[in-house]
């Protein structure tokens, strides 16, 4: 209750201060131009009005983006979990797999995305899903692998005393112990996948929230721009919240401090 109150208060103060920027003038000292700040930073009330007026459009475009992001996240997630599982069966693969993954992860995927879009063809969902997958795949892989390697050797030895084979070590030990980490990394990967999808749309589609952002930018309609960003942000927050709830249900044994 205290927590909710604290969040609510902070948010209210933040929005109130923001609302006070209404009618402020922005001075461009280079061109000696005076413009209303509204062009760059519309007030919360303006954003809300834009959101209400374009409700159908924003929601339908957001759903398109979320669909792509979800497809990207799920494929990246399955790939990362499968690869870490493979590592635990064939440890030798890790020596190859991790350096390659780290190398690819340092590669600026966003910068590379125009090439991906050209490869899959402009306007296709597949290119967006692919970018989103690449972006969500690495945080899951790296964090999950770190966790699995951190499981104390003593516990593995214990399993060997019970005569358990690799398959049982995976099913009884590695996988159940990893579930909290899987959920935590999903919390990182879900927003990443949504950002990836939005970026991809920005560059190469005719629909989705990323496209709506581009259009509203060109139409000098900051209200819609910010409303679109807010829609994306809320989708992320809701997903993270849902993951927290799932985590609490499936891993009641996790110690809370």
């Amino acid at each position: 209750m205290k927590k909710i109150l604290a969040i609510f208060t902070t948010l209210s103060v933040f929005l109130a201060v923001w609302q006070m920027t209404e009618n402020r003038i922005n001075v461009d000292r280079i061109n000696n131009d005076e413009t209303s700040l509204e062009a760059f930073l519309p007030t919360p009330s303006t954003i809300y009005t834009s959101f209400k007026d374009n409700f159908g459009l924003i929601i339908s475009e957001t759903l398109i983006t979320l669909e792509r992001a979800f497809a990207g996240f799920v494929s990246g997630f399955i790939m990362a979990v499968a690869i870490v599982a493979l590592f635990s069966f064939f440890p030798i693969l890790r020596h190859v797999g991790i350096p390659i993954s780290v190398a690819i992860n340092s590669f600026p995927i966003i910068g590379f995305s125009p090439i991906i879009i050209l490869f899959f063809g402009q306007g296709t969902s597949l290119s967006i899903v692919f970018i989103s997958m690449l972006i969500s795949y690495f945080p899951i892989l790296i964090n999950l692998d770190n966790f699995v390697r951190g499981i104390p050797a003593d516990i593995f030895n214990m399993m060997k005393i019970y005569n358990s084979g690799n398959r049982q070590i995976f099913l009884k030990l590695i996988f159940p112990l990893s579930i909290p980490t899987i959920i935590e990394t999903a919390k990182l990967a879900v927003p990443a996948s949504i950002i990836g999808a939005t970026m991809g749309e920005w560059l190469g589609t005719r629909n989705g929230i990323g496209h709506l952002i581009t259009v509203s930018l060109y139409q000098l309609n900051p209200g819609v721009l910010y409303a679109s960003l807010a829609a994306i942000m809320f989708s992320s927050i809701i997903s993270i919240f849902a993951l927290s709830v799932i985590g609490k249900i499936v891993t009641p044994w996790v110690i809370k401090n």
């Binding site: 214990m158 019970y162 005569n163 358990s164 159940p176 579930i179």
Partner: peptide, 21 residues
């Protein structure tokens, strides 16, 4: 150091060797 799996209750931990066998 007692090696018990944190995701299993006492009973489930004790069942583990039997499950494996």
């Amino acid at each position: 150091q007692p090696l018990l799996l944190p995701n299993r209750t006492v009973r489930q931990n004790i069942e583990l060797p039997l499950e494996i066998k």
